[in-house]
Design a protein around this nucleic acid. Structure first.
Lengths: 252, 252
DNA sequence: CACTTCTACGTACGCTGTACCTAGAGAAGG
DNA sequence: CCTTCTCTAGGTACAGCGTACGTAGAAGTG
């Protein structure tokens, strides 16, 4: 089928006539690139194994430790060999995120109570974020929707179907839902990262509150009780988010 | 006063007796470090001018272009001189974020209507995020509270004071409020970043929806109307967030 | 068989953050 | 005054990063 005349090409996207074939329009999205074309030798690795290796590194040593060299070494491959599987490092991150999204255990059928289903889903999401501390920060800055994330999306849409909200509204709802949980997890992570940082922060805040320059902050400090249990705080806020989601749309 | 006997030092935080004085406990938080100690020559730059230079670079060339060398060059200084002002690059980012927080124009008195005040505040925040496209991604991953951010916090607490919520609850409310706006801005940014990316994403999604593997996604696609105006979508979702915030706490 | 197309991977480049060191400026103590 | 001490300025250097490019060989296609 590629035997058409190569001489005339009005489009600038045509393959260059030079030595290297210059794959004409390699999609930016890695999910649109086939993992295997069938020609040539069989690859020694798979996207799955690559993602797993990278995730192991990120879990144990942090996301900064995930470099192309490091992952390649973990696979027993040369550094540049990785680029046969992953055109850019960003795509490696995409693979990692989607692999983590594969950890969701989604019940096959909605329970019938939207609140119950969403609460369950939220807890599962938080558990995943806690299991992989690097995920929250990554997903906040890099939205990427692989096959497993699509499964999650589909599940969310199914669970919220009885709410009476339209498709677009449920998409927005999912964005709010995920966003809240992500940020909660991210906050937990940074707080847990450095005890010294947290101690200094508390000192700085109290000092600021007592300086008189921030009266409402001082008042809030005074009326604030003991630091809340994170799990209870999560449940409380998640409840608010779910309520916000399920409220009937405003008639403006 | 520092003429006490240096021989015995029971505390491990004492300056080491070696040649270098080893600044005993430099705080990790840059806001706890004095900008100037009074000794030695006057610095040629200020935190403010450094932050301004870095912000200009980030605004025009993106956050990735903000490197220590680049900022130093913009200031007409040697690369390593920057480290006299900023112990680590992270702290430069802290300076940038707080400088941007200084752009808030906060009305001196609450209007009396909490919803109105919060809506106004949200719009101002979104405007800032749109003015500085790099801020959203940064603040999502790096919470840092400088003096200007404290002003904002204080304002928020003041505005929400009539809501009847306790101090801690209003802190959580602020986290949700800021988090939502941040994420909205961040989504806008990534969507605006690459038209090609967006086009591919749409193609990928529709293809996925039609594949039959994601029935609810397909259904949502079918019932979804035209892509909503971003400003209207923001207002709609912001309204929901404010409602969630102002709802009385659950009595569980 | 030849031909094409793939994989594997070494080398190399430009860039990053920053540890360390040397000068010299200028305030503080005698 | 001079000495001393602390600060600033900035050069050099290093380890590590992402990745462009080129080459060698394996595997599937005609």
């Amino acid at each position: 089928m590629p035997s058409s005349d190569p001489s005339q090409s009005s489009e600038p996207s045509a393959p260059s006539p030079s030595g290297r074939p210059t794959p004409p329009e390699a999609p930016e999205l890695i999910w649109l690139r086939p993992e295997r074309t069938g020609r040539g030798p069989r690859p020694a690795h798979s996207r799955e194994s690559i993602a797993a290796a990278a995730i192991t590194i990120a879990d144990t040593e942090g996301l900064d430790a995930v470099s192309m060299r490091r992952v390649a070494a973990a696979l027993g491959a040369g550094t540049m060999s990785l680029y046969n599987y992953v055109p850019k490092k960003e795509h490696l991150l995409d693979l990692m995120l989607d692999a983590v999204s594969g950890e969701y255990r989604l019940p096959p059928e909605p329970s019938g109570d939207v609140r119950v289903d969403l609460t369950r889903l939220g807890h599962e999401q938080l558990a995943i974020f806690r299991r992989h501390p690097w995920v929250a920060a990554l997903v906040l800055t890099r939205p990427s929707i692989g096959p497993n994330a699509l499964r999650y999306t589909d599940h969310f849409l199914g669970v919220t179907a009885p709410s009476g909200l339209a498709g677009g509204a449920r998409m927005e709802a999912m964005a709010m839902f995920n966003g809240f949980i992500c940020q909660f997890a991210q906050y937990e992570q940074t707080a847990a990262a450095g005890a010294k940082w947290q101690a200094e922060m508390v000192g700085y805040l109290t000092q600021a509150a007592m300086s008189g320059a921030y009266p409402h902050l001082a008042q809030a400090f005074a009326t604030a009780g003991p630091p809340p249990d994170p799990d209870r705080a999560f449940d409380r806020s998640l409840d608010r988010v779910i309520s916000a989601i399920l409220a009937p749309p405003a008639e403006d």
